[in-house]
């Protein structure tokens, strides 16, 4: 019986990143950037989100790419199976 699930590593990575994400946009982590300090006049928290947000989107993008590669690989495998049979 073939189960069409993404590989477990991905699943674990996903859970890990979710937790990490939850931490990184919440207290106390964002407290690090809170305060009057600024970068070129832009408050640090704003800078954090302006760069952190696209970065997290990039992570999702990488994750999706990995998913696609894996389903590609699985398809190839299936094809090979068929051929060798």
């Amino acid at each position: 019986m073939k189960q069409h699930r993404p590989d477990n590593t991905l699943r674990e990575a996903w859970i890990l990143f979710m937790i990490l994400g939850m931490i990184m946009i919440n207290f106390p982590f964002i407290h690090i950037f809170n305060g009057d300090m600024s970068l070129l006049g832009i408050p640090r928290l704003v800078v954090y989100f302006m760069y952190g947000w696209p970065a997290s989107i990039a992570v999702i993008w990488l994750f999706v790419r990995r998913l696609e590669q894996e389903s590609q690989a699985q398809q190839n495998n299936n094809n090979n199976d068929l051929i060798t049979r």
Binding site: P6, W14, F17, M18, G21, M22, I25, L45, V46, F49, W53, S56, I57, V59, I60, F63, V64, L67
Partner: peptide, 18 residues
């Protein structure tokens, strides 16, 4: 900044959409 979490939450959960 409390307009932001309304969009940060979906970004986070979008990660798990698959």
């Amino acid at each position: 900044l409390d307009y932001l979490p309304i969009y940060l939450g979906p970004t986070l959960i979008a990660f798990g959409w698959w």
